[in-house]
Design a protein around this nucleic acid. Structure first.
Lengths: 339, 339
DNA sequence: TGCACAATTACAAACGTTTGCAACTGTAGG
DNA sequence: CCTACAGTTGCAAACGTTTGTAATTGTGCA
C-alpha cells in the first residue's frame, strides 16, 4: 500500500494507462474513449480522489484565493464586509484568506508581504488608522496583482475603490438633527487622519452652514481610538456644559458613550438631547433609548469589493480604477425622536 | 524584459549560474562560495525576489496554512477565537483560512471538502447547530490530516478538543443566583442538540438540586437560534407570569431579551428579577442594568486550538486526543446585585 | 496490398522550488 | 607527474497536475 492521498498517478498505474489519459478522463475530454473515461471516474470515486490543490495552483498560476486585509476582525462592520466578500468569492469558486492588522501599520506591512508571493490572486484592503505610507501596496501594482480598496482607502494608489458616501451620511445625520429642532449640535468623531472621519465632519459642517447654525471648537471632538470608553471620557465636559441639544457621533459606540454621560448628568433622552450615531450596530437597537444611526452597508461593500476584484483577476488587461460610492441611509430610532 | 514575478531562474540566468546554486545561495548554504552567495542575495534583493509560495508548497507538501471552520463570523466569541488562532499561527509562520458555515450543515460539508485537497496542513472546527452527521470530518482522520475541535465538538471523532467547562459555568451561574437569594430560577438556553447547551442546563439543574430548589418544565426554555428576538419572544410568557425571581440565560443576547420583557412588564431590575447571562459580550457592559455573565475565553480557546494543531502537524506520528477544558468565570454586574 | 485517416493513447514539457549526486576545478602531497 | 581531496558548481529528479504533440492502433477504401 501507499501512504499519502491518492493521486492521478495511482489511478493511472492501477488502470494501466498514462497519467495524461487519467487527467483527460477526469475532465470528461471526448478524446478519451468513453469506456476508459467511465473506468477512470469510477476508480477515482472509489478512491475518493481529489485533485491536489497546490499542484493545480502551480500549473495554472492561480490560487483561487483572495486576500483580505482589515484593521479589525472583532468588529460588526468588518465582519459584515467579510461575509459579503465570502459570499461572492465562494459563489465564484474562490477561497478567502484574512489578515487583521490590529490597526498596526507594521503588521499591515507584514501581512501584505506574506500575501504577495503568489499566495493570492488578488487583495482587498482597508488600511489601518496608523498607516501613512503606502509603499507596501505599491508593490502589488508593480507586480500587477489585482488590488481593491474598501472603506478606509488610500488615494495615492490607482486601484478600484469601494467606499461609503461619508460626507453625505454626515450631512444627512446632522440635517436630521436640525429638522428635529436642534440648534446647537456637537460632533464626536474618530481619528481625523482617516478620510472617512474628515468626510463625516465635512458633511456635518455643510449641514450646519446650510441652516445658518454655528458650531464651536469645543463642540468638535476627535477620538483617536473611537471606542466607547474614550468617547465617554472626552465628551463628558461637553455634555456637562449643557450647551448643546444635539450630537452627531461618527460611531455608535461614541454615541452610546455620550448618552451614558447625558444620563449621568441627569439629562432626559431624547427630550434634552438628541443623538444620532453611525454604523447601525446591533447594540443600537437594544440600548435605551434605541439609537438613531446611519446605515453602513458592510455586506454590500464586501460584495462589491469581491466583485471588482474577481472581475479584475479575470480580465488582467483592462484595469479598473473606478471608485464605487455606496449610500448611507438614516435610521431613525428613539434617540432622535421628538413628539 | 520578462513579464511575471522574478524567479530563481531569472536570477540564475542573469548571474550565469545554475538554479541550484541560486537556491542554495539564498538559503545561505556554505557549500556555495561566499562571493557567489553575496552576489545572488544582492540581485535577489534588487529584484525584490520572493519565493513562489505555491512551488514551495508543492515541493514540501506543506502549505503553512491552517483551516478554520466556524458556524458564524459575525459573532463576538468566534471573532475572539479566530484572533487567538491567528496570533498563535502567525507567530509560528502559518497563515489561516476561514470558512464560516453560517450554521448550515450543507455549507460545512462543502467547506471541509474544499479544504481537504492539500490546501491546508490542518483544520480547526466548531460544528454547526445543524450538524448531526460527521462523515465529512472522518475523512480528515482517514487521510491523517490533523484536526482539532473547539467549543462545539463532535464526540465521535478521535481528535484533540478544546472546550469550555459549560457544566461548571452553568452551575456557577445558577449557584450565584441562589446565593443572591433567588428561589425560583428559570433557564433560557440555545439549541439543545448542542452539547454545550445540554451541559449548561445540567449545571443549572445540579445547582438547583444541591440547594433543594425546584424548577418547572415551563421554566426551561430552548431557543433554536439563540438570538435576541427569539429569546425575547419565547421568554415573554414566563416573565409575565411573575413566577420567577431569577434567570440564567445561556447567552447574553437571550438575557437581554428577557430583561427587555421584564422592563416591559413593569418589573424593576435587579430588584424584582436577577439575571445572569453567558459569554461576556461587550453589550453586557453597556446595557442598563449591566449584565452579569459567565466569561467565555474565546481568545484562549483559539490559542490553545492552534497550539494543539501545530503540535500535531509538527509531530505527525504521535496523535494527541486529549480534551482541554477551559474554566469560565463569573462576572458580577448590576443585573444580579442585591444590596 | 497499401494508404489515408480517425480514434485512442502515451510521451514529455512545463509551473518554481529543493536536494542528492555527479562533475569540474585547483592545490598539495607523494 | 599523478592522485587525492577540498571547494564549488551543475544536472536531474521530484512534488501533482495539464496539454501540445507524437505514436500507436484499427478501419475503410482504392
Amino acid at each position: 500500500m501507499k501512504k499519502g492521498p491518492v493521486t492521478i498517478k495511482d489511478i493511472a498505474r492501477e488502470l494501466n494507462v498514462s497519467v495524461s489519459t487519467v487527467s483527460r478522463a477526469l475532465a470528461d475530454n471526448p478524446l478519451v474513449k468513453l469506456e476508459t473515461r467511465l473506468a477512470v471516474k469510477e476508480l477515482a470515486k472509489k478512491h475518493n480522489y481529489r485533485p491536489h490543490f497546490t499542484a493545480l495552483s502551480l500549473r495554472s498560476n492561480k490560487t483561487k484565493t483572495l486576500g483580505i486585509i482589515i484593521p479589525q476582525l472583532v468588529h460588526e462592520f468588518f465582519s459584515m464586509v467579510i461575509r459579503g466578500i465570502e459570499d461572492h468569492a465562494y459563489a465564484n469558486g474562490y477561497n478567502v484568506i484574512i489578515s487583521s492588522s490590529h490597526e498596526s501599520y507594521e503588521r499591515e506591512v507584514l501581512d501584505t508581504k506574506a500575501l504577495i508571493n503568489g499566495r493570492v490572486d488578488g487583495l482587498m484592503a482597508c488600511i489601518s488608522k496608523e498607516t501613512k505610507d503606502y509603499e507596501h501596496f505599491k508593490e502589488f501594482v508593480d507586480r500587477s496583482i489585482p488590488l481593491v480598496f474598501f472603506d478606509c482607502i488610500c488615494d495615492e494608489i490607482e486601484a478600484p475603490k469601494v467606499v461609503l458616501d461619508d460626507f453625505d451620511a454626515g450631512y444627512q445625520a446632522t440635517k436630521h438633527l436640525i429638522q428635529q429642532g436642534c440648534t446647537s449640535i456637537a460632533y464626536v468623531g474618530g481619528p481625523i487622519n482617516l478620510l472617512i472621519n474628515r468626510d463625516r465632519l465635512a458633511g456635518y459642517n455643510k449641514a450646519l452652514s446650510e441652516a445658518n447654525l454655528n458650531t464651536k471648537d469645543d463642540w468638535i471632538i476627535h477620538c483617536d481610538s473611537g471606542d466607547y470608553e474614550e468617547g465617554r471620557q472626552k465628551s463628558e465636559p461637553l455634555i456637562n456644559s449643557k450647551e448643546i441639544d444635539g450630537i452627531f457621533a461618527a460611531t455608535d459606540m461614541l454615541a452610546i458613550g455620550a448618552m451614558k454621560n447625558a444620563k449621568k448628568a441627569g439629562l432626559k433622552l431624547p427630550d434634552d438631547l438628541l443623538v444620532v450615531g453611525f454604523s447601525n450596530w446591533s447594540i443600537g437597537t437594544l440600548y435605551e433609548p434605541s439609537l438613531s444611526t446611519m446605515s453602513q452597508p458592510g455586506y454590500e461593500m464586501g460584495l462589491k469589493a469581491a466583485e471588482l476584484l474577481i472581475k479584475q483577476i479575470d480580465n488582467p488587461e483592462q484595469t479598473i480604477t473606478e471608485t464605487f460610492v455606496l449610500k448611507s441611509e438614516l435610521i431613525v430610532r428613539e434617540s432622535s425622536m421628538t413628539d
